[in-house]
Amino acid sequence: MSLDTTQVRKIAHLARLRISAEEAQAYADSLSRILGLIEQMNAVDTSGVEPMAHPSESALRLRPDEVTEPNQREKFQAIAPAVEAGLYLVPKVIE
């Protein structure tokens, strides 16, 4: 399966990656090649095989309900691109 530039642009938008027209073509080529590699998977019949999400078959460990984290806002916001009044600033969010 190969990807065209329209699909590439759609994927790039989903992933929030701005790409130019030339880049779209280049990505269409390289992603198509990678998909060619990936599609070798189809050579194997996997019907009836249980998908494997985790290497270990362990169960989720549960944490006791305790407040353990102190306020570190100043430290965390010292490395933020834009803050005011303790808030992270972003271009206006439109609902």
Binding site: R16, F76, P81, A82, Y88, V90, P91, K92, V93, I94
Partner: peptide, 16 residues
């Protein structure tokens, strides 16, 4: 938003 690089110029949230 919270750390790291942010593009210097943008029009809106999605653009940012």
């Amino acid at each position: 938003v919270r750390y790291g690089y942010r593009a210097p110029e943008y029009d809106d949230l999605i653009d940012m």
